[in-house]
Every structure is written in C-alpha cells, then in structure tokens.
Design a protein around this nucleic acid. Sequence first.
DNA 1: TGCCAGGATATTGGATCCAATCTATCACCA
DNA 2: TGGTGATAGATTGGATCCAATATCCTGGCA
Lengths: 229, 229
Amino acid sequence: MAVNDGLSRLVARAQPRHRTTTEFVEATLREAILSGVIAPGTPLRQEELAETFGVSRMPVREALRQLEARALAEFHPHRGAVVAEISAADGADIGAIRMALEPMALRLSLPGLTAADLDQAEELIAEMDGEADPGRMGELNRRFHMTLYARAGRPRLLALTEQHLLAADRYLRFQFAALGYRPRSQDEHRALLAACRAGDADAACRLVEEHVGEAAEQLTAFLEGREAG
Amino acid sequence: MAVNDGLSRLVARAQPRHRTTTEFVEATLREAILSGVIAPGTPLRQEELAETFGVSRMPVREALRQLEARALAEFHPHRGAVVAEISAADGADIGAIRMALEPMALRLSLPGLTAADLDQAEELIAEMDGEADPGRMGELNRRFHMTLYARAGRPRLLALTEQHLLAADRYLRFQFAALGYRPRSQDEHRALLAACRAGDADAACRLVEEHVGEAAEQLTAFLEGREAG
DNA sequence: TGCCAGGATATTGGATCCAATCTATCACCA
DNA sequence: TGGTGATAGATTGGATCCAATATCCTGGCA
C-alpha cells in the first residue's frame, strides 16, 4: 500500500509523547503530507490509517478534520478525504501569502534580534551550502527564515508564517527533484543576513520579499510547465 | 445556561442545508464565536452543545477540532475546550497579519476590479453611514474590504484575509460597545475607494495598510487599558 | 453495441458505550 | 486550623456498532 509504506516508517520512529492519540495522529499525518511522504491526491482511508497507527478510526477522523481546517486535506462528504492537490495556481497563492507575511514578520523581529540569532542564521546558511538532500535543505531553509523572524513577538503571525513556509516546502520538493536547489537562493540569503546585521529594516524587508517572490515565480513557472506537459 | 441561551437562537434560525451534521455544527459555532454570541473563555461542554444542536456528541467533537485549528477554541486534554480568549497582544497580532495580507490582496485585485465592484463598495460605505448596530456594521465593513479584494484570484489568500477580518470583528465588538465606531474610519474608506477608482495601486495599498494599522492601534490601546483597569 | 437501472459492496457519518483522567470535596492528620 | 491525601463525580478520549450514502458492477433493453 502506497500510503502505509512511507507512513509506517514515520509512525514507527515518531515519539508518541503527545498527550492524546488524536494529537499524535494529527502531527504525524501533517508531517507526512508536508514532507511529501504521502503524495497529493492520495485518498486518506480512515480504516487503513487507523491500522497503520494502531488505533481506532476515531482519532484518525478528528485528525483529518484538523488537517482539513489547515487546507492540507480535502473532504468530500461520504467519499472520504484526499491529500490536498498541488497546482501552479495554489503555489502562486502560497507565494503571495509568504510575500505578505514574511516582510512583516522580519520588520517586527529585526529590532529584537540578538547577535546569537544572527550567528545561528549564518551557520544555517553554511550548512545549506553543503547539503544535497531536498528534505534536509527545506528544513534548513525554513529554520533560517524562522530564526530571523523569531523575535517578532507575534505568535499568530509566526505560526501562520511557519505554516506557509512548510506548505511552500511541500511544493519545492517537486522543483528540487527536477531542477535542484535554486542557485541564486544562497546569495539572496547572504544579502538578507547582511542587511539584518546592518539593522537596515527597509532593505531587509525588500530583500526578503524579492527572495520569496523569485522563488515563487520560478516554482510557478516550473509547475505550469509540468501541468501543460 | 449562558451558552445555550444565545446559541439556541442561532441554531433555531440556522438552515441545516449543510451536507453533514459536523459542517452544520462547525459553521454555526464559528459564527457564534466570531460574532460574540458566545463570550471568550466560555467552556464548550460537548454534552451541552450536543443537546442544544439536537445531535450526539460526535459531530460536536469534530467541529471543535476544526475550530481549534482555526484558533477559535483552545483544547485542554481531558478538561475540554474553551472559546479562545481575547487580549491586547492577540489583537495586535491579528492587526499585524491584516496589515500584511490586505495590501497584498488589494494589489493583486485592483487591476481586475470592475465598475460594478467599485459601485458596490461605494454603496457599502453609504450603508455604513447610517448604521448603528455593531454586528451589522462589522459585516458591512467586512464586505466592503472583501469587495475590493475579490478579484485577486488567490483563493487561499482571500480565505485567510476574510478569516482575519472576522477575527478582527470579534475584537472590534468590544470597542464598539465602549467607544462606538471609529469616526475617521469612514473618511479612510472613502479615500481608499478614490485611490482604487483612480487605479493608483501604490496609494491604495498604502491607504489600506494605514487604515488597518490605525484601527489595530486604537483597539490595542483600548484593550490594554481594559486589561490594566 | 451502448446506455440506463438496480442491487451489492465498500466507506464514511453518527450514536452509543466504556475507559481514562481531571476536579472538587471531604475527612484526617500534623 | 491549615494542609494533604483519598475518593466520588463529572467530563473528555477512544472503541465499537449501526445507519446512510456513494461507487461500481452487472444485467436488461433499446
């Protein structure tokens, strides 16, 4: 079974240190969908998932409802849930949201950033230089961005930003596999970090907006080509 | 019972034309929370809600999970859910998100706006002039904003924007009740509409950002005073 | 040969039941 | 008298069971 195959590995190594079974199932499924372990369009059969997780159908149902609210799964009444499809239009949608949220997060965070934060960001850039694995690269990229936003002091804004960084990751997987990492991305990361170190908020916000925008643009072009072909 | 009282009225006049009971419960509860019919901090007892809706506890449970994913309810394992609290910090958080999303939505929508859209926006401003009821005012305000963003062609961005407009409404209720509607708001609406009619994207985006920012600022000040006192 | 109808099957949606756990109360002891 | 521990009640979390609905296949008919 395509679903169980990759997922059961995730389930096996997932620490069930969650307080309820529902939380455990939701977190693991979300990870699986965002990381691409379960492909878009895959039907999420309740019974099958329940068996994989070793629980009854009920916590699975509640978890699926939460995933629906996060736009990671689509419900069709009496026909079940499927993993949300990916499309060029949706990729552009997520890109637009990131272009709106991330400059705001950075602007709020910048004054509070410590030297340690900036050093950690620099270290993450260095790690990305030598990384080939797409999944790991996505995680490093996400951590780099979130490190810069961490001092915004706006929990909702940060949660929303991270959620859409994760959603973008899911998309970027497809691009990574075909084209490799976007070469200019690292240059942009370095320029962004330099602006943050200089405390130049306007420049930093402009850079992050351009950075996200270019990534989204290239992704959209790639996906449109994929849909056309 | 404080919960049932206002809620049962909503339930009574709600058309159960939803495909599943869970959808019906979720939509009605969301409306009740956002509109303030159920106050922040109110415990959401599953049995009580089930009785009010005339269903079993199960669809209530699934609906509550979805509300949690939307940050409208907070879950405490084995202790139940409560309606999400409101706070000055959270109000500022929502304000920051709106300030990020709405200029982006407007910029994407502006080129596609029709004369009919602009006329409808103007009509909504006129309606707001003569409106005293806070709930109705919030709805008109929301429709005005969403009308201007409607042609963005980004479903996720629009859904997120509307969700945070609704969340802001929930907060504004408290301010309405104490201070009435912010007087300068209508002037800003008119200026914004004028910029849209002129097709001046930069000005329109700047105006909407300022508009949202000022509303958020005043709200935050009000809530901080309320929390201090 | 193609299309429509009807029934069998699979899967979800909803109800009921049981177990786990949290809270509050009360007795008991220092 | 104040604090601590045990116990009872209430409430949620999870499992199982039943009903409702969609899909798919097959057979009959034009």
